[in-house]
Nucleic acid binder design. Structure first.
Length: 257
DNA sequence: CGACTTTGACCGGCGC
DNA sequence: GCGCCGGTCAAAGTCG
């Protein structure tokens, strides 16, 4: 609503010179995208990175580089989250506690299923965008890509969600990704593969070829480690098998009564 | 009646 | 220079 009206109003201002208010701009230059530039500096970069990515990821794998362009776009945080859903569920909805407004849907070349585009509807100025698309490999997996960071708290801090900034980390049956930003590049660990074996998934800011040195430096950073520990602790403690095993181990160490 | 979703058209960038 | 493609806009439609 809010973001929607914002864009519409800007467009109106942009065509104020036109003689009549046609349902569609009479001339293509009437400027649908007028006024988008200001809020869109980041997006054009997304398009670039996405195109680069699409060329390389026809299989829709998660570990492909999500690099944004060097320079002006490097500070945009990109987080990818996978959720397993009911294959019969056609709604491209990933619940993460935030309110999203859908502003577009598109069928992309590398994936027959449509991609939905969402903006954060909770705060008009929130720059976060979300793209949701089914995995090309497994239609029961939704891949949500978050771009940017919320500049407001989560509207619903209750219940199922992880409270930490990358929205939606482990709500689905695929326990998911962790994303940390420190001074620019983002590294995401995708924990979805092989039962939790961490895998360096993406290194932002390193174009098509991930820079392993940068990745290693990020992984070694204290903030990354603490977040990783928190994430893993959360994952492990929520696993009944783990808690059982932990309880058994503790009991073994206790003296018998 | 307002809020939200759908959907066709448009734009800009990139590759050839 | 042209065409392709992803991303976005905004009118129309739908829902509560």
């Amino acid at each position: 609503m809010i973001a929607h009206l914002y864009g519409r109003d800007v467009a109106r201002l942009g065509v104020e010179g036109s003689a009549s208010p046609p349902p569609r701009p009479a001339s293509p230059l009437a400027g649908k995208k007028r006024g988008r530039d200001s809020m869109e500096a980041a997006n054009s970069c997304d398009a670039h990175s996405n195109r680069q990515k699409s060329g390389a990821t026809a299989d829709g794998d998660y570990d492909e580089s999500l690099a944004t362009d060097e320079g002006s776009c490097r500070r945009i945080k990109v987080t990818r989250v996978c959720r397993r859903i009911d294959p019969s569920d056609t709604s491209l909805v990933v619940k993460d506690g935030y309110q999203w407004r859908k502003y577009g849907q598109k069928v992309t070349r590398d994936n027959p299923s449509p991609r939905a585009y969402f903006r954060c509807a909770f705060a008009p100025s929130c720059p976060v965008k979300k793209k949701v698309q089914r995995s090309a490999e497994d239609s029961s997996v939704l891949v949500a890509t978050y771009e940017g960071e919320h500049n407001h708290p989560s509207p619903s801090r209750v219940g199922e969600l992880p409270p930490t900034p990358p929205p939606a980390a482990h709500n689905g049956s695929l326990p998911c990704s962790i994303s940390i930003k420190s001074s620019g590049p983002t590294i995401t660990l995708d924990l979805t593969n092989n039962g939790g074996i961490a895998q360096a998934a993406e290194a932002e800011g390193t174009a098509a070829a991930p820079d392993l040195k940068v990745m290693c430096r990020e992984v070694a950073s204290p903030e990354f480690r603490s977040a990783l520990v928190a994430q893993m602790a959360s994952e492990l403690t929520s696993d009944p098998k783990f808690t059982d095993a932990l309880a058994a181990a503790i009991l073994r160490k206790l003296p018998d009564y």
